[in-house]
């Protein structure tokens, strides 16, 4: 694990009696985009806050570029950048002043500060908004400037917490493009998201977190292949469907959704499931109006991982 730029062992966070993060361990490798994927409230942001010094650690250790995040907090802060889940730069300052302030606070020399701010305005296509106050920017522009501000001091590891939350499709694509570009230029990125497509689209490796625990970790391909045998059967019954609990207990059924006469089953053994479905229809005097069988998509893989706790 020599190329681990962020090494976390047994990281734990308690809020009172509630365990928000439960013995999380992982390694972020140099140069990769590491995804931290999980539903709302899974512990993603708390983990990032612990790593960046915004929240105290209850247990475990975390080292960034070899520095302990608690003991060597100031050194760590000089090496990382954080883009929080809300774009919270200073509303009455212009884009330029916001960037310069971040450069000043990180000790970037005066001449380099201006150069760096110019470069970032160019890179993020914000040059024409240079003298516009932050509060007057659109949501997408605010997001871009918040990312730019986190890069003013040239961090080696960038934490992006839900970078595209609340953005429209165009702005989201644009931010994705920027993340890829920054990564191609050598920046290691730690990205938290609840968006499965974003994680699968951008990340080299993904850790899936649910209820404070990491339930799976691997490349997008590895996570998919772990569930490659998973199939989805969608079936419509007439006149209506029978009791769902009978379907839920069938062998190999991993997930189940029912709505009206329609049922979606996530299964491991599709042949056995089809046979059981036929018996179920006969038993309840139902006819099958339509039926389809397909592989699980990314979202279904994700739901299986967090639901089944595999990994």
């Amino acid at each position: 694990m020599t190329n681990c730029v962020c090494e976390v062992h047994g990281l734990t966070k308690f809020y009172g009696n509630f365990k928000a993060v439960d013995s999380v361990s992982f390694c972020v490798r140099e140069g990769e985009i590491f995804g931290f994927l999980g539903p709302n409230g899974a512990g993603k942001t708390t983990t990032v806050r612990m790593l960046t010094g915004l929240t105290r650690i209850s247990g475990g250790t975390a080292r960034i570029f070899g520095y302990d995040v608690v003991r060597d907090g100031r050194k760590v802060k000089g090496l990382i950048g954080l883009v929080p889940d809300t774009s919270n730069l200073y509303s009455e300052l212009t884009c330029w002043d916001n960037l310069i302030f971040h450069g000043e606070m990180h000790g970037v020399p005066r001449r380099l500060r201006a150069e760096r701010a110019e470069e970032l305005l160019e890179l993020f296509d914000l040059r024409r908004f240079r003298n516009v106050k932050f509060r007057n920017l659109s949501k997408g522009l605010k997001r871009r400037l918040t990312i730019a501000a986190a890069l003013m001091h040239g961090p080696k590891l960038l934490f992006l917490d839900e970078p595209t939350l609340g953005l429209d499709v165009l702005s989201r694509r644009r931010v994705w493009g920027l993340i890829r570009k920054l990564n191609r230029e050598g920046l290691t990125i730690f990205l938290t998201t609840h968006n499965i497509y974003e994680a699968f689209e951008l990340c080299d490796r993904i850790a899936v977190i649910n209820k404070g625990r990491i339930v799976a970790i691997g490349t997008p391909a590895e996570l998919r292949s772990r569930f490659s045998a998973t199939r989805v059967i969608e079936v419509s019954f007439s006149p209506s469907r029978g009791p769902l609990r009978e379907l839920a207990v069938m062998d190999g059924v991993m997930g189940l959704e029912g709505s009206g006469g329609r049922v979606k089953l996530i299964v491991q053994d599709s042949l056995a499931a089809l046979e059981a479905l036929t018996n179920y229809a006969r038993r309840h005097g139902l006819s099958v109006e339509s039926i389809s069988l397909r592989g699980a998509d990314a979202e279904e893989v994700f739901l299986n991982i967090i639901g089944g706790g595999s990994g």
Partner: peptide, 11 residues
Amino acid sequence: FGSFERLLLFP
């Protein structure tokens, strides 16, 4: 507005 926390991120 949550920008106070930004100050805690500086070295």
